[in-house]
Write a protein that binds this DNA or RNA. Structure first.
Lengths: 251, 251
DNA sequence: CGACACGTTGAGATATATCAAACGTGGTGG
DNA sequence: CCACCACGTTTGATATATCTCAACGTGTCG
């Protein structure tokens, strides 16, 4: 629960609330990499908080190819929305080995009944997800390949910085080019070529499960990345310049 | 408030709840077509319920082109998520002339404090939006032009049916090909060509502000449309066959 | 060592964008 | 009532981004 809503400008949790949420956890589970936890259409009685590792949510198409609709880092309440929604419209899987905390929906109902303030914060947490969906729509609809990839890398680094998993220059990001393709709506082959140009241009480097950002300013500009939608506490110092400019341009 | 959550399988409202929500409305407003109601970054103190007409939410890119991230029909609580989120990450505008009901956030707080059941239903309503965002991501990421357009038309018709604004064969849909382009991430020129083929193939017809569906089955198949994510009360009879088959294929 | 997943590269095909222009058509003002 | 204008639609020709297919390289793990 440590990372939940950490680094976010809205709805930060106080100690009591954090303890309260901690108390909701019925148990922890270890999952291995590349396994599906929930299938589209399943009814849920519990929600998953990601403690360690990376997970995704995705939707399959006719041929079994999937579109990843969400990428999760530690501290994300992966399917909190499964509580009000009950049935999920997408599947959930791990990318890496992961440690999750399980929160029964009955516990969440108790929060709803007794703690409107905390309930509102949980609600807001699910809406941060929705805000990210919208930015992903922007990415897929308005950016071409380089932009999409730059945007995703910028976003992910920003999120990892918020929870202390990126130092602003490099971070662990164990995803394959195939994963990136499923995120950006491209072929893994094309992702490969785009990553090469980003590397050759000394903008960033994705290799050996690590992302290294060499020129944040240009990365942000190419991805038209403006972190407003992440509702972060403060723009990390290292990225201020880039964020500023991407913002101005968009307006 | 009549149409809010109407036709949805989850979280339907009982009479008392409907009255309660009705009571939250501070006033009504008429908006003219093609005007922006809220700009990205604005802080909200009230939310908008769409009573008549069509509205959209969108995100601008560097050059001022926009990606529409959401399309709203009567009964939609357009920016209910502005209540927990406070600041919006996108803009809101009308497509047609519209009638909206204004609900102050202070009123929503009272619901949160006093009626956990209704609060949960409001939460769920915002998550239906998120589910739609995910399906839009699938659409942009995995479908090509014809599929994207077919999917949007199928979705919109299904939503209009749920609120009684489509009879299952035809409905009023006063959007331009330019709008469709901003929804599907295409050029209006290409949208035009795709609409022509859909017309020539006797699948559907978008003309004179009306959508006419000639072959629902094929429309659904082309768009890989599976209405699960809309959480509708029941699949409308006319579309059952198409829904069925699109579903099976996707699994 | 072999198998397998992932990454890389090349050549050719194709979907969609871009640029340019003509064509309706409904609304407005004279 | 007509002339005109603005806006959306339609069409053509060309350019380009991305996909597809195919092959080969590389590292890891049993």
């Amino acid at each position: 629960m440590d990372h939940f809503l950490r680094g976010r400008s809205i709805e930060r949790l106080d100690e009591a609330e954090r303890d309260r949420l901690e108390g909701l956890i019925s148990r922890h589970r270890r999952l291995s990499a590349r396994t599906t936890l929930v299938e589209r259409g399943e009814e849920l009685r519990q929600s998953t908080l990601l403690v360690e590792g990376f997970m995704i949510r995705y939707i399959d198409d006719v041929e079994g190819h999937r579109q990843i609709v969400s990428f999760h880092v530690p501290g994300d309440f992966v399917d909190l929305h499964g509580y009000p929604l009950r049935v999920l419209d997408h599947s959930i899987a791990t990318i890496t080995d992961a440690l999750i905390a399980v929160v029964p929906h009955s516990q969440l109902s108790q929060i709803m009944d007794s703690d409107p303030t905390l309930a509102r914060k949980l609600w807001a947490a699910t809406l941060l997800d929705a805000a990210m969906h919208r930015e992903w729509l922007f990415r897929l609809g308005r950016l071409e390949a380089v932009g999409r990839i730059a945007h995703f890398l910028a976003e992910t680094d920003a999120r990892l910085q918020a929870i202390g998993l990126s130092d602003g220059r490099t971070c662990a990001l164990p995803i394959t080019q195939g994963d990136l393709a499923e995120i950006t709506g491209l072929t893994s082959i094309h992702v490969n070529r785009v990553l090469r140009t980003l590397r050759e241009e000394n903008i960033c480097l994705l290799r050996a499960s690590r992302l290294e950002i060499l020129d944040r300013h240009r990365l942000y500009r190419i991805g038209q990345f403006d972190p407003t939608y992440l509702y972060l506490k403060a723009t990390p110092p290292t990225s201020a310049a880039g964020a500023e400019s991407a913002r101005q341009q968009r307006e």
